[in-house]
Amino acid sequence: MPFQKERSAGFLANQMARLFAKGLQQRIRPLGLAPAQFMTLLALWDEDGLSQSELVRRLDVEQATMANTLARMERDGLIVRRSNPNDGRSQSVHLTRIAAALQGPATDAARAQNGAALANFSDDEKEQFLALMRRAIAAMHDE
C-alpha cells in the first residue's frame, strides 16, 4: 500500500504546525518578536527568573538553540540575566519592562491565530481536538 500523507498523523501534524507557525510569525512580527522568542516569553510570563537549563527542559529545545534565542532577546532588551543566588554557576533569566509590556499584544496575536486555525470547529469539536492533541503529545513523551 502506498504512503498516504492525508492519513498520516505525522505529516498532518507537521503541516499544521508549519502553517500555524507561519501565521503566528506574521502576527507577532509587528511586535518585533520571532516565534522562538515568543515561546520563551510564554515560559517566562508564567514564571520569571528561570534558568537557561530550565527553559530548555520546559520548551523541549536544544541547549544551543536556547542560548542563541536568549542572546537575541538580551540584545533586543527583552531579558536580563542575573547570577542565580542559589547556584553561582548558573544565571536566571528575567523579563524587562519591554517584555512585560508585550504580554498582552503577543498573547492576543496567538489567540487570533488559534481562532483562525479552529474557526471551522464547533466549541465541542475544539475541545475534543485539543484533548486528542494532548493525548498524542503525552503518548510521545512516554516513549
Rank of each mutant, 00 (worst) to 15 (best):
A13I: 12
I137H: 15
Q103P: 07
S122L: 07
A100L: 15
E6H: 11
M16E: 15
P105N: 06
L55F: 06
L118E: 03
M39A: 05
N120M: 01
S51L: 00
R72V: 05
R18A: 10
I28R: 00
L44K: 05
D48F: 00
L31N: 01
A106H: 02
M73C: 01
Q128S: 15
R97W: 09
A71L: 14
L95T: 05
F129M: 09
L33C: 02
L130E: 14
A13T: 14
D48E: 03
E6M: 12
K126Y: 09
L42C: 13
Q91V: 00
R75L: 09
Q128K: 15
E127P: 06
D124Q: 11
A13W: 14
G49Q: 01
A67R: 10
R97T: 09
A64I: 09
M39D: 01
A34L: 06
A71M: 10
A117G: 08
R135P: 04
A106K: 01
D87P: 06
L59N: 02
G49E: 00
A17Y: 14
G10V: 14
R134G: 12
A71Y: 11
S90T: 12
L70K: 02
D76S: 15
L24E: 00
A21R: 14
K22Q: 14
E47N: 06
D124P: 03
L44F: 04
D46L: 11
L41Y: 04
A43C: 05
A117S: 08
A116F: 04
D142I: 04
D108K: 13
R81N: 00
A21V: 09
Q63G: 11
Q63T: 12
R135E: 13
